[in-house]
C-alpha cells in the first residue's frame, strides 16, 4: 500500500497539536486538583504519542538517518526533538512506577511532571519547526 508521506506528516502534525492541547488541559486539571482526570488524560495522550512515534516518527527518523543526506543542523535538531520526546516517555514511566512503589522517587513527583511538561512543549515546538522546514518552506 503506497502512503502519501506528506499527508501522513500533516496528519501526524494535527495529532501532535491535539496532544499538546490535551497535555495543557491535563496540567490545568492537576492545578485544580482533579487528579484522577489528570492521570487519565495524560495516560491517553502518552499512549497515542507512543503510537505516533512507532508508526510515523520513528520510521521517518530512521529514513533520514540512513537514506537522506540532511544538513548537520537539521540532523541535530531532529535528534534533539526525538531525544526530548523519548525523555518525556521515560519520565512518564518513571512517575508511574514511583507512584506504585516499584521505584523510590528522589524528590517530589510534581517536579518530574513539570519537567516532562516542559520537555513535551519544547519537543512540540521543535517538531513544528521541523514540519515547516520539510513540508512548507522547502
Amino acid at each position: 500500500m503506497l502512503v502519501d508521506v506528506r499527508l501522513l506528516a500533516t496528519g501526524n502534525m494535527l495529532v501532535q497539536v491535539a496532544l499538546m492541547a490535551a497535555v495543557i488541559v491535563a496540567a490545568v486539571l492537576a492545578k485544580r486538583k482533579y487528579l484522577d482526570r489528570h492521570c487519565l488524560v495524560v495516560r491517553v495522550a502518552v499512549v497515542l504519542q507512543l503510537i505516533a512515534i512507532a508508526l510515523v516518527m520513528l520510521p521517518s527518523l530512521l529514513g533520514y538517518l540512513t537514506k537522506e543526506s540532511p544538513g548537520p543542523f537539521f540532523l541535530a535538531e531532529t535528534l534533539v526533538h526525538h531525544t526530548l520526546g523519548l525523555a518525556v516517555i521515560a519520565l512518564w514511566v518513571y512517575i508511574n512506577l514511583a507512584m506504585r512503589g516499584a521505584v523510590k522517587a528522589s524528590g517530589r513527583l510534581v517536579g518530574y511532571m513539570r519537567a516532562a511538561f516542559i520537555m513535551w512543549l519544547l519537543s512540540f515546538l521543535i517538531g513544528v519547526h521541523l514540519y515547516l522546514v520539510i513540508w512548507v518552506w522547502s
Partner: peptide
C-alpha cells in the same frame, strides 16, 4: 522489578515493554 523492590504490578509497564 528494580533492585530488591517488589515486582512491578502495573500492566501498562508490561504493555510498554511489549511495545
Amino acid at each position: 522489578g528494580f533492585g530488591d523492590r517488589r515486582s512491578i504490578d502495573w500492566p501498562g509497564f508490561y504493555w510498554f515493554q511489549e511495545g
